[in-house]
């Protein structure tokens, strides 16, 4: 920072004259610039290209082969993998589950996040003209956010045992028995139709805190005067939320939605830890990420695994493009 002073303190004319003089001969900014740029760009670009970009490009080629991964030779089989994909019921299950997560995870997580964030920031007692958060809101924020910094593996293991049968330490069933609701005890992870919904709940559990903090930051930047004006006009809590808070944090909600949609397309670690590599009972809790891993590293069918990967890429890109179009349209309408 100290270096700004000489430049700023020196008479402006003098520096300008110096600068033009040097530019005429050779700009000092340009001196040694290209070797520098090359040296600085080579390591990051090189590692990125080798370990990340080139695999993506190879994956598309591998998806057209019958490569087992065990041998060096393989045949190019055209679209056979994709035809197999179309006829594979397990892939349809995985796809359906990913779509369930894609639709419900953002809705559930963002609604809860908005609800708790508005409680914390503007939900306090409304006395006088001040709008305030509830008591202890900073502690709530710390507690709510904590699952977000935990490894998904830890979250997965904890909930695997929360939903386990009572004889294996399942705390949820024990809790139900304890409060006399024996009828609600279930073999939670043994019932195929529950699996993906349990994954959805656990995913929501671990992400809500993130959105509480994200939306809190957005709500903190809303000027207090707006709330005071709404309060003086006799606006109810709900109206204030709908007419004031929500429109002013809407941009953040949109960004949060995209981020959660990306998370919902993943779900690998939750499913792999809680339900295992086959996606639980009857494979009912399978997701595409787990299917790719299973086909490649358990079934040694690298070609097929890659074609599932391409399906996932197409899906992700479609979602990204759709979102961008929706957002652009909305921005145009607002303007």
């Amino acid at each position: 920072m100290t270096l700004t002073e000489p430049a700023g303190a020196a008479p402006a004319e003098e520096t300008r004259r110096q600068r033009t003089q040097r530019t005429r001969s050779r700009s000092p900014m340009k001196r040694g610039m290209y070797p520098f740029i090359l040296t600085f760009l080579l390591p990051p670009v090189g590692i990125y290209a080798l370990y990340m970009l080139s695999p993506y490009i190879q994956a598309i080629y591998i998806s057209f082969t019958d490569w087992s991964g065990l041998t060096t030779d393989f045949n190019v089989i055209g679209f056979d993998n994709y035809v197999e994909l179309w006829n594979d019921d397990q892939i349809w299950t995985a796809l359906r589950n990913n779509l369930i997560l894609l639709v419900f995870a953002p809705v559930l997580t963002l609604l809860l996040g908005l609800f708790f964030a508005s409680m914390l920031n503007v939900g306090g007692k409304r006395r006088g003209v001040a709008v305030q958060g509830v008591r202890g809101s900073s502690i709530y924020r710390i507690v709510y956010f904590f699952p977000q910094v935990l490894s998904v593996v830890i979250v997965g293991i904890v909930f695997k045992y929360v939903f386990a049968p009572e004889s294996a330490g399942g705390i949820l069933n024990s809790l139900f028995s304890f409060i006399g609701l024996d009828g609600l005890t279930q073999l939670w992870l043994g019932e195929p139709s529950y699996l993906i919904w349990i994954v959805l709940l656990v995913m929501t559990w671990s992400f809500v805190g993130f959105y509480v903090v994200l939306f809190s930051a957005a709500m903190q930047s809303i000027p207090k005067e707006i709330y005071e004006a709404a309060l003086l006009d006799g606006s109810t809590r709900f109206t204030t939320f709908r007419r004031v808070t929500l429109p002013l944090v809407w941009d953040t909600v949109q960004v949060g939605w995209v981020y959660m949609a990306i998370q919902a397309m993943d779900g690998f670690a939750f499913v792999h830890i809680m339900l295992g590599v086959h996606g639980g009972v009857d494979g009912a809790g399978d997701v595409l990420g787990v299917a790719i891993y299973r086909e490649a590293f358990s079934n040694n069918d690298f070609g097929y695994a890659s074609s599932i990967g391409v399906l996932m890429l197409v899906l992700t890109m479609t979602i990204a493009v759709l979102f961008m179009r929706i957002m652009r349209r909305e921005r145009v309408e607002l303007a």
């Binding site: 080139s54 695999p55 994956a59 591998i62 993943d266 790719i292 690298f302 695994a305 990967g309």
Partner: peptide, 20 residues
């Protein structure tokens, strides 16, 4: 090219990355 990596699903890269 860097930013494009933000939207690529990691699972597609798994298999070839193993070989790289």
């Amino acid at each position: 090219v860097f930013v494009a990596g933000l939207v690529l699903p990691v699972f597609l890269a798994l298999v070839p990355m193993f070989f790289v």
